[in-house]
Design a protein around this nucleic acid. Sequence first.
DNA 1: GGTAAAAACTGATAATTATCATATTTTAAA
DNA 2: TTTAAAATATGATAATTATCAGTTTTTACC
Lengths: 229, 229
Amino acid sequence: MESRCENCIVRQFNSLRAMSKEELKRVSDSKTTKTIKKGESIFREGEKLDGVFCVRDGISKLSKLSANGKDQIVKLASKGEVIGQRSVVAEESVNLSAVAVSDMEVCFIPKDGIVSTLHTNPNFTLEVLRHMAHDLKEADDVIVNMSQKNVKQRIAEAFIYLKTNFGEDEEGYLKLVLSREDISNVVGTAIESCIRIISEFKKKGYLKTSGKRIGIIDEKALNNLVEGF
Amino acid sequence: MESRCENCIVRQFNSLRAMSKEELKRVSDSKTTKTIKKGESIFREGEKLDGVFCVRDGISKLSKLSANGKDQIVKLASKGEVIGQRSVVAEESVNLSAVAVSDMEVCFIPKDGIVSTLHTNPNFTLEVLRHMAHDLKEADDVIVNMSQKNVKQRIAEAFIYLKTNFGEDEEGYLKLVLSREDISNVVGTAIESCIRIISEFKKKGYLKTSGKRIGIIDEKALNNLVEGF
DNA sequence: GGTAAAAACTGATAATTATCATATTTTAAA
DNA sequence: TTTAAAATATGATAATTATCAGTTTTTACC
């Protein structure tokens, strides 16, 4: 055990911070750290999880396969987020697949420590509840965006989201590099439509690209698009 | 106080059932029962709630206004559901509006009793958490439907949903009568498109209508559509 | 029961988006 | 470095969906 949860910065961002010293010690003793390469999966839709995954580094896409064979990406989880929590709380199989979109380091925490704390420490349970309440609000917002905004607006919004949440490198390209297919699966559109709109944004001077990297040049223009101007 | 929570059947369906006798008594003492007419609103997006609403009877639409001026209905809440819970838990203003789509009877429960129980009774907190976990899964499913299914499929699915969740009358019409506009706002489409597809389903013998009432004739056909056959 | 307003409906047309076919570029492996 | 595969890109076209303009039907109220 090279590292302990007690000393982990990441914990400050998630519900583990509401655990008592003893509870956290127990979790730390039982956890295992895993390295996951870009493209590898953490779990698949339908599996039964016997624990949760705490993201220490890297980013995972959470997606669901739809009847037409396309994946819909519902959320991107990064440092500090706990994934698989919903499934453990509800005692159901997971309804989303988790696949790394960049190299990741995650801690697997067996559910025993989590579940027993949920039953005994209301501070922890309430903290988990607050995080889930936040996720639910975000999900509701996504529903509204998906149904009320057009593809161009959703793509513009996605790039702003990627910039504000994952940042950009020294050259001004988005740090999180997603394939065009992943972007399509975030905004729920055909790959070709997505590529076409990226080309259009490039022509208009909103974006720049270099290989699969994408950089935002005119964030204001993208924002105006999203707002419907 | 004509009626007490302790004796209320509705409570069995929601998280209040995890409260202790004393906690429930407190809630029951502080609650007030309200009658809400069809079309009236319970709360509006952006408001601060100082309590939650437990639905005793009738159905409420939970919707959010989008930039283009259309309401997107995110959820229909009926008997037993507690609305406004997310907002109280997260200590944020509500992000959805609640409007009655049929005459309703609801109990308003001031948040004090709820919040203090959340801090002290992990069984209750966990029960609320489980409900929220369920809502989150449903929201994720809606995201996938919205982005991966076409309007025809979403409308077909909506009618199946209305039948299985709210039932039909003796004549075979859906018990919950929604305006065409509300149906459009559930599936996220233009009213005219919605009406056109209803007409098409009628011609094909999938549905029957009588005024604004709609009845399902061929549920299998609707199901096949949803599944993509 | 009559009447005005609202809701439901239909047609024509435009805009958006998906699909198919194919070309080009990039990436990764031999 | 060469080369094959994968990803990106573009054009042409079809399918889906929205919008506008108007008619008919239903609902609610005096």
